[in-house]
């Protein structure tokens, strides 16, 4: 991996984020509803003078391009502005929520890749077998079912029928003062349902992709050679075939990261998970422009980082790409 290649990717990423910031700024302002009226409404009403003072306070009475310039120059200095609703720095609000979101998204990503690939590999061993059929059906259902529906079904199942997993929040209130180890266990306990809900749709995709990719690779000459040389089936599948079959999976995993974050928005809302997704959802309803843009900025940042990491892992998996920029 050459440093210049990495720098180039980072440069593209920064340009992309700048585009995201500008586009979001302009798009969000097309939504109907005056934030000053919302703030006044949330306060319990206001006079016209108070409305004007709110607009003045938050710079809403300035021309749109001036507002854009102020915002972009703030972002460059890592100042994402003040939330209209909470009147706190957006960076504070995001800092309070970014870790839960990262935890949820990364767990779901790992879960979906590992389980999905495993199922795909198993299914590829006997393409016409029962396991293969099961994976295909499961993948179709998993892909077709909306993520919020899965979440609600799991809540119903685990709230009343089989109450073994908590169905909302991230940490039990009663464990607020407990030691960090107990809290970590409790967080993992709370993480099971949201992570599985978020993972299931992508798990299904990876299983199908893994199966198709493995079937293609398993028909290759070098696999036949490996088998002829007496390599064990496990070695053929996981050592020789999987590494080659992993390339399309890695590509899709990188591309799916953005979708995973948008899926987290729904999952966080369903499971009351205290992450950025819920903050984004609530902020849109409140026309809290700085907070929405801050969340989108961080989301785009995560996607850019994920794509760079994907590129790097792609090169790790395929030595032929290492010399190319």
């Amino acid at each position: 991996m050459s440093a210049s290649y990495l720098m180039k990717r980072v440069g593209y990423g920064l340009l992309l984020m700048l585009g995201v910031v500008i586009l979001n700024f302009l798009l969000i302002r097309l939504a109907p509803g005056d934030p000053a009226v919302v703030i006044a409404g949330e306060m319990g009403g206001a006079t016209e003078e108070m409305l004007e003072s709110i607009r003045e306070e938050y710079g809403l009475n300035k021309p749109l391009l001036t507002q854009l310039w102020i915002y972009v120059s703030g972002v460059v200095r890592f100042d994402l502005g003040q939330s209209f609703f909470f009147n706190q720095p957006v960076t504070t609000l995001i800092a309070q929520r970014i870790l839960p979101t990262i935890l949820l998204v990364i767990t779901a990503q790992i879960l979906s890749i590992l389980l999905g690939v495993f199922l795909g590999v198993i299914a590829s061993r006997k393409p016409g077998g029962v396991v293969s059929a099961f994976v295909s059906v499961f993948a179709t259902i998993g892909y077709a079912v909306p993520v919020f529906w899965t979440g609600i079904m799991l809540i119903i199942l685990f709230a009343s029928i089989l109450p073994i997993f908590p169905v909302e929040g991230m940490l039990s209130v009663k464990l607020r003062d407990a030691n960090i180890f107990v809290q970590a266990l409790d967080v993992l306990h709370h993480l099971v349902l949201p992570a599985f809900t978020l993972a299931i749709i992508y798990l299904a995709q990876y299983a199908r992709l893994g199966r198709a990719s493995m079937l293609e690779v398993l028909g290759s000459d070098y696999i036949r050679t490996a088998r002829a040389k007496g390599a064990s089936e496990r070695s053929v599948l996981f050592k020789h075939a999987l590494r080659n079959a992993a390339l399309p999976i890695l590509t899709v995993a990188g591309l799916q990261f953005g979708n995973l974050i948008s899926g987290a928005l729904l999952v966080e809302t369903v499971f009351n998970w205290p992450g950025m997704g819920r903050l984004a959802f609530d902020s849109i309803l409140r026309r809290d422009y700085p907070t929405i843009m801050g969340v989108l900025f961080f989301a785009s940042f995560m996607v850019v980082v994920a794509n760079i990491l994907t590129d790097m892992s792609y090169r790790w998996a395929d030595p032929r790409l290492r010399g190319k920029s």
């Binding site: 939504a31 109907p32 919302v38 409404g41 849109i284």
Partner: peptide, 11 residues
């Protein structure tokens, strides 16, 4: 769809 839209209409 949300409070701002309604408040904008009625206000």
């Amino acid at each position: 769809p949300d409070f701002p839209t309604w408040a904008g209409r009625v206000g």
